[in-house]
Structures are given as C-alpha cells and as structure tokens.
Design a binder for these strands. Structure first.
Lengths: 340, 340
DNA sequence: CTGAAAGCGCTAACAC
DNA sequence: GTGTTAGCGCTTTCAG
C-alpha cells in the first residue's frame, strides 16, 4: 500500500513552496504571476506521480465538500430513480458527487437524514420533502444552505422549487374520461397533504364538480412501502364500488398496484373500468391495453433542478428571489381510457 | 447564520480540556477513567447546545470517511435501483452514507469515477464492474481498500463477490422451454464479456446442445442507453427469423425492449413466440400474458453485499480469503412460456 | 483522571 | 513571483 503523497511532497521534490503548488493547482497561477515555466514543470510532475490533492483536507479548509445531498421518497421508485440518474450526470460533470437517501415520506427519518447531510457538509440539497419538515428546511435556508425542492413544495417555505402543473394534469385527465363518456370516475391516491397530492385531488374534484357530475369519489390509501398494504384497501374499494367505470390513479406506484388488483379481479380496461395513472413508464406502455398516463417531463425536471441548484451554488450571496418553476405534463392517451 | 460550534467551544464552556470532551464523545470515558459526573455533565451540555463533531475534520484525522461508494451500471435500471435502496438502508443503519454513480458499463468513465471515489476517501467500494477494469480494482485492493463486487465478477481479481447462478438459470429456463415443446429457441442479450453474460449464454448453449437441438441462435446487441438503439436491431432480428418460436432475453432491459418490439410487430406470446426474461419486475408480472422471468433474489444479494462489506470494514487487517457467494434464482413460470 | 501539543493536508493572508 | 505561517476541527500521544 503506497503512501499517498501530499502537497508537501510535491513541493519538496520540486524545491518550491507548497503555496506555489497550491496556487498553480487551483488555476491561480496567472493571477499570482507565476512563471509559465514553473507552472509547466509543476503540472508535468504532478501528472507524472499522479498526485491528487486530498479533498477532505481541502473541504475542511474551504468549507466546501463538493457534494450534493439528494433526498427522494424512494430511490427504487422509477420516477425518482430516473431523476436521480439525470441529476447524477449533470452533477458529476460539474464536479459534484451525490449522496442520496430515501425518506419514505417519513418526517422523523428525514430529520435524521438532514442532520447527517448537514454533518457531512453537503454543499446543497435537492429534495422531494415529506410533510412536517418545514422548520428543518427553514433552518437549513437560514444557515445559508442552497435548497431546491422538487415534485412538491412547502407552502410556508420560501425557496426554489420545480414541479409540474398537477392541478391541470388531473383536471385534464378527468375531463378526458368524461369526454369519453365515463360517468362514474374515481380518484385513488396516497393519503397526503403534500402540495402535489392536494393539487391532484383538486384537479380531479374541480373537473367533476364544474361539469356537474356526481359527487367526487376519492379513495385515499396510507403511504406504505409494502405492496400488499396498498393492494388490500384497493381491492376492497374496487369490490365495494362496482358502479365505478373509470379510475384515475394519483401516482405510478398506486397505478401499478391498481392494475394488479384489477387483473386479479378480472376487470378489463377500458370495458369494465377505464384507467389512467399519473407518471408514465414501461409498465403502462406495455400493459394490455396500454394505459393512458400523465407523463411528467423527467428530463426537464432534473435539468431545472440541477441548473437552479448550480446557480445558487455558484452565487451564494445572491438573494435573487426564489424561483418557482412549473412544468407541463403530457397526457398520453392510450387504449385504457378510450371507450369503444 | 449561526456559527457552528466546535469541540473547543464546548471545552471552554465547560472549563474542561477538549481532549476530555473528545474521549467522552468517542465512548472512551471508561477506559480513560473519566468521572461519571463529568461524563454526564458533558453529554448533557452537548445535547443541549446540539453540538455535532465536524465529520470532515474527523475524517481528515482518522482517515475514515464513513462513506461507501456504490457503482452500478445504471441507477435508473429497476434491478440496480432496488439493490441501491436495500443497500442504502443497511448502510445508514451502520453509520455509512452512500455515494453512487452509474458506470454505463463504460470502462473509461468507471476509471474516472474510481478516481473520484478514491479522492473522496470512501471507505469501501460496492460495484457491478464493467469490463477492462481489472487493473484499477486490483490497485484499489492493493492499497487496502475493501471492494465487494456483485452481479458479476472479474476472473483475474481476487476479491469478494456476490452473484447468482447464471449458468444454471438460463440452462433451466431453456430446458423449461424445450419441455414445453418449443423447438426454435433464441437467446437475445447484450454483447458483453462480463462473467454473468458469458454464463447466461453458456447456460443457454449447453441446454440447446446437450439436448440435441438445432444450433444455438444467439443475438447480441451492443450495450446502449438509448432504447431505440436496442429495439432497432431486435426488430430486424425478429423479422429475419420468423421460424423462432421462443426467445430468452438476457436482462430486464433487453426483455422490456423485446416485449415492445413483439407488441409492435403484433406477435403474441406464447402462440407466436414464447418469452422468458432474466430479472423479474412489474412489467413482466403485469404484461398480458404475464411473462415468465428468472427472478434474482434482490434482497439476498443486497444483504450479502453489505454484510460482506461491513465485515471487511470492521476488520481491515483480516486477510481471510475472499468469499464468492452464489445465490439461486427463481424461475417464475407464467403464461408467456406455456404452450397451450 | 486531565491537559498540552502535535499533526492530518490544504488554503490564503501576509510578508519579502 | 514565491515562501512563511496560521489555522480549518478533530484525535491521540505523552506528561503530569
């Protein structure tokens, strides 16, 4: 195990002060008017021996860790996994590494996790925040940490966020079902007071009410990692409401579980019950019949998130007011919601 | 923005030396025979003011970063995303954070990434290694870094790895197709010399040959992120081989693309062509007909990976010889491979 | 039992 | 243009 070399070793081998090495390595040679000759000699030697500055020491000194903390609901959820992938690429290109964690939408777990990230001196936070975390985020911001929220936001918290037009999305999807002639449209989603969920419910409700339909039928299911815990209430709900002729699912996970339940019960879309789900992914595309889905612009979300964060990172002092970016979704109409 | 407090602040406020504080905080009070009284006073104060040691400084001093580097092919692939989730949970419980990255199976990218992780002083590496990375891993190991490989291994490299019985899995799946009466069974996979792929091909080939079937039909597709780049050659292959009555797909990604292609071409499983895919996930379960899949024991893989790594982390000196853990897969037979 | 002091490797005032 | 030096916050040896 070869000893790691330090800047002092380099300095000694070259008979130069370590300050000079430091300046050269940090691209401040010009500014410090260090001779081109020396710069070249140093760069050459550094490359030869493969010297890499110890980033821990650097971080300790500068207070910058070049790390971004990414907190999502569940990294194994395809929506968040795609976002994670896209963010990773952009972050690495810009010299940042990503530490991730899954919050499970659990407030206490998230508080802990924030503590860990803080402890780790991450330079910035990207998160899909659970409920009840307002104060912790607030305090992060107060301490000058850049925080970018996505997928949802925290009404009381003034910081940048990127989300989609949830209200319009479900309104539009519901309207589409009504246009197709479905009469008894239900909305099934996770029980949540998060902004995105509230908006999705509202979009559905508005559509139902403003079009003079029967009272909204809303089924809320407690957030849970375990599929069976989601499917059981869903099964009961479907059985208990045989007159429902269309269901709009509020998330990809609920949608997937919904399809499983409908399969089990032998209900076919769209004849027995039409189906639309929020989020689009392979399961919906490949299903028979293909499932109409509200596709979120995953690339655009990730792009905006990282762009906004990098801006904040590069310009810490800027007190530009927080950006709220709302992106459009795309209703991908497929057979599961088409009558005859 | 409140000033972060340091161990010195605590020491001053309590009129104790920082050494003492350090000992107490690191659970060495007993050993150093520090009075219970003092210990309590310190703990209480620390809790009150919410002091957290600066882990950067700690890392710099101790050389431990409490970080694990996780390198997968693509974090957005459901197989790797699930593993990532499971590993995350176990790692955090044990006080480790995870830095992840996607290698895209690209050797040069991976070399870079290893450099970054090294630079970051991660304490251990978990990786699904691409080809051609032997030397870099070797050098990691030579420098005393714990490395655990999974999903595949590197023949020349002596280190722990966890994988599944690929050879038997595809042999078994192929045999199942033969038992069902399919005669013209093709194997479609990513072009790769990685161990898991070689074994999967071999399992298929062995089954075909040892059962006196017609020559193996193997289609290899270049690894690519872009779906269309996978689907195009697949489409050509299917069109060019109308006599094939069963296809075994080598990975979930190829399998998914395969289903899309078959759908496009209006080929139904199992009547037009039977289908089996490696890896199991919602797409296969929900497909009509449900797709037979070789399910990898994701939890067991993740569990073994992290257990082995934690062992190595806790016992650096141990030169116990590397473990090779091979887990069983589960052939989940569904309608896509059942004749009549 | 407790404290002083020496670094871990790096950056950046401040000299010269 | 280049070198000296003082820390960043922590652990740990060695004295007392």
């Amino acid at each position: 195990m070869k000893k790691k070399l330090s800047i002092v070793d380099i300095a000694n081998e070259l008979n130069v002060s370590k300050t000079t090495i430091s300046f050269i390595l940090n691209g401040r040679a010009q500014e410090k008017r260090i001779s081109n000759d020396l710069v070249e000699r140093v760069m050459k030697h550094v490359a030869e021996v493969g010297y890499k500055p110890n980033s821990l020491a650097k971080s300790l000194r500068t207070g910058k860790s070049n790390t971004i903390g990414l907190m999502v609901e569940d990294i194994s959820n395809p929506f968040f996994a795609s976002i994670a992938r896209l963010i990773e690429d952009r972050a690495y290109v810009n010299g940042y590494k990503i530490i991730y964690c899954s919050t499970d939408n659990d407030t206490n777990k998230t508080k802990d996790l924030i503590g860990m990230f803080r402890d780790r001196h991450v330079d910035g936070y990207i998160m899909a925040p659970p409920e009840g975390i307002e104060e912790d985020i607030q305090s992060l911001i107060k301490d000058g940490m850049p925080v970018v929220l996505f997928d949802r936001h925290l009404p009381g918290v003034k910081t940048d966020f990127i989300e989609v037009d949830n209200l319009f999305s479900t309104y539009n999807a519901t309207k589409h079902l009504m246009d197709q002639g479905f009469k008894n449209i239900a909305f099934v989603t996770f029980a949540s007071h998060q902004t995105q969920m509230m908006d999705r419910v509202k979009g559905y409700r508005d559509a139902i009410i403003s079009n003079g339909f029967k009272p909204p039928i809303i089924k809320e299911i407690p957030f849970n990692q375990d599929e069976e815990q989601i499917m059981a209430p869903l099964r009961d709900f479907v059985k208990a409401n045989p007159d429902i002729d269309a269901i709009l699912f509020g998330t990809n996970h609920i949608g997937t579980c919904g399809l499983k339940v409908l399969n089990e019960l032998g209900k076919k879309a769209p004849t027995d019950v039409a189906v639309i789900s929020f989020d689009d992914y392979d399961v919906f595309k490949l299903h028979s019949p293909p499932v109409t889905a509200i596709a979120q612009p995953v690339e655009a979300i990730a792009d905006n998130v990282i762009t906004v964060l990098l801006e904040k990172l590069n310009d810490r002092s800027s007190s530009a007011k927080p950006q709220s970016i709302v992106l459009k979704t795309d209703l991908r109409i497929r057979n599961s919601s088409l009558k005859g």
